[in-house]
């Protein structure tokens, strides 16, 4: 029995094909809107990953794996973690402590604003890392070798 690949029912295929971009878009919204409402990097990354996993479950493989290739998972996971680490290191360049974004002085910007932006970048990094990790775990568990 196979997990990935085209699902036999056309209703399921069409519904999921229509739905998945909106799920991914909702995930992006959640990441961007984490300052003002529920959400943030963790939840948003999971939603984007759901938007990537849904086509794999229902659409033909050449389509779903060209939308989100296998290398996306490890690559974005690493990039997200790296982004987080670099944001953490940036304050150390100006002599502050690790992850203390408020110490970075940007002209015309209050310290609270810098921290606001730091939170945004960190949320994006967390979102990328969670997205990559979830997609990677799914890809590994559905490697074709498993389902003979």
């Amino acid at each position: 029995m196979m997990m990935t690949g085209a699902y036999p029912s056309v209703v399921v295929r069409v519904t999921c094909a229509l739905l998945s971009p909106f799920i991914a878009m909702f995930g992006l919204y959640i990441i961007a809107h984490g300052h003002y409402g529920p959400g943030g990097g963790f939840a948003g990354g999971v939603f984007v990953a759901a938007g990537a996993i849904l086509p794999r479950l229902t659409l033909p493989e050449e389509l779903s794996y060209s939308l989100f290739p296998r290398w996306i998972g490890p690559a974005t996971g690493g990039v997200g973690l790296l982004l987080f680490l670099l944001v953490g290191l940036a304050p150390m360049l100006v002599g502050a402590e690790f992850l203390d974004y408020g110490a970075v002085e940007i002209a015309g910007m209050a310290a609270s604003r810098v921290r606001y932006l730091g939170i945004l970048v960190v949320e994006v990094g967390v979102g990328l890392a969670v997205f990559g990790a979830m997609l990677m775990i799914f890809d590994v568990l559905t490697l074709r070798d498993d389902d003979a």
Partner: peptide
């Protein structure tokens, strides 16, 4: 400047 305290705590 973050109203959602959970987010500011998290990040």
């Amino acid at each position: 400047e973050t109203p959602n305290v959970v987010t500011s705590l998290l990040a």
